[in-house]
Design a protein around this nucleic acid. Structure first.
Lengths: 256, 256
DNA sequence: CGTTACCTTGAATCTCCTCAATACACGTGG
DNA sequence: CCACGTGTATTGAGGAGATTCAAGGTAACG
């Protein structure tokens, strides 16, 4: 009974848990915070938000008062065109920041939608300035995160702009496995993911049909399998060979 | 004689001019700095660097001790593939920051090359942390610049991933005119630029041949002309129509 | 006046797209 | 337990768009 009540409260985003016990801190892919940074984040944090799969978290053009960090679950960031076409920019995983653009430019330049049920940590945009003033280290982290996103966007652009279908898909999948691994979403060489072939198609700029056929070609090599939300790379090295992929050896990263 | 000597010194990057008189400050597309910020930048700045067209400013994989702001001239940022293919990520214009990645990740994830003779303002990477600590406003600016680059990369990705050739080129050109205008490189609807069709091809992910043919189609509409480094848009509205372009109404921007 | 860099052209080929079905998996209600 | 609906994955065929190869043309510069 007690527990049930708590569940409800979380669904409405009322619970505020201690940052010191944040589940993300258990993952050593992230950097440690200083004591005073942790204290500040504690006050910076407005609460937690639990949302269902398929919800729109932030919408293109919208000015949001909030900034989020993903605690659990997957989201997809994309741009929509008049013709109904969609460019998937990236997928958001635990530790990723959502809504930086609205904090910087007063409006989003793309839409963010949940792919699974998610838990988000909610911050108040108004206090971002305070963060820079009082905790330069966290301000630096924000820049780091933004620069990293830029770097990923550039890689995706190069991938879509220059590589043929097979390489393109191989690259995306390796990249997702790599990121998923750091976020604790992979078991060995298997990535647990909610993404569909349509998401892949929209991410690499190919039609669904062609994506499907290319994916079959890729599976036919025996280097990977993909079923029921589980993507497994059997030979990462040879896979990286056709993808022209090199894991970016970034060390421990901040997550705010 | 006196003057000639000064020229030589600048070519070797020895001159250090006052930031208060920085030519960029004359452009009101950029935000004003506070007095103390200006003083800090003055000390942060190592010197000025004058380089020739065609020089490599930063190389992919390289760890640079410096960070630059473009004072004048054009550069191109790109990724190179084994096969010799090249993805142009963006063009750098006055006010743009170069080398943020090496400051954040200890290595560049792309190459930067000058397209014209350039003047760069040189900063020391070691002191970036000091910048965050002493001048949170400038730290915020860094994040702003990084987020803006991310936003541009995302737009380019969507452009390359989803649009057909004609729209793709139209979009790129409008985007360049818009940016060039803010950087003071345009006269009315004419952009003065050193970029070639090959650059355009590498930026939008099409072959030179097809880029050429598509460009001719675009010029045939009468909406634009391009000769001798001058691109003129005659009907920006209709051009924006085929490009699906909407100018991002960002206000005054920082430039560090 | 020759060199170089850039732009233009035509033809053959192939990648990728659209259209239009069909198949499969999973959950729901009868 | 089966029938049905929905979302996702798969197939085949024909056509548009982009690529490559291979020449040629033009403007700028020394």
């Amino acid at each position: 009974m007690q527990k049930k009540h708590q569940q409800d409260a979380r669904a409405k985003g009322r619970i505020k848990l201690s940052c010191a016990k944040c589940r993300l801190r258990a993952n050593d892919a992230f950097r440690e915070f200083e004591r005073d940074e942790l204290d500040f984040i504690e006050t910076f944090k407005v609460g937690e938000l639990a949302i269902d799969a398929g919800a729109t978290i932030l919408m293109d053009g919208q000015d949001s008062p909030h900034l989020y960090t993903v605690l659990s679950g997957w989201a997809v960031r994309f741009k929509l065109f008049e013709g109904g076409q969609r460019q998937v920019l990236n997928f958001s995983m635990p530790g990723d920041l959502i809504g930086l653009q609205s904090a910087m430019f007063d409006k989003m330049h793309h839409t963010v939608e949940s792919l699974t049920d998610m838990q988000l940590c909610v911050f108040n945009r108004d206090r971002v300035w305070e963060l820079y003033r009082l905790h330069p280290g966290l301000g630096f982290d924000m820049t780091w995160l933004a620069a990293r996103e830029e770097s990923i966007m550039a890689e995706y652009l190069a991938n879509v702009g220059q590589r043929p279908a097979l390489e393109r898909i191989a690259y995306l999948i390796l990249h997702l496995l790599e990121r998923g691994r750091r976020a604790g979403l992979a078991k060995g060489n298997t990535l647990m993911t909610p993404i569909t072939q349509e998401h892949v198609a929209d991410a690499i700029g190919l039609s669904i049909v062609h994506t499907n056929k290319t994916l079959q070609r890729l599976r036919a090599t025996g280097l990977m399998t993909w079923k029921r939300g589980e993507i497994t790379i059997h030979d990462a090295e040879r896979m990286a060979g056709i993808a022209g992929f090199q894991a970016s050896g970034a060390g421990r990263r901040p997550f705010i």
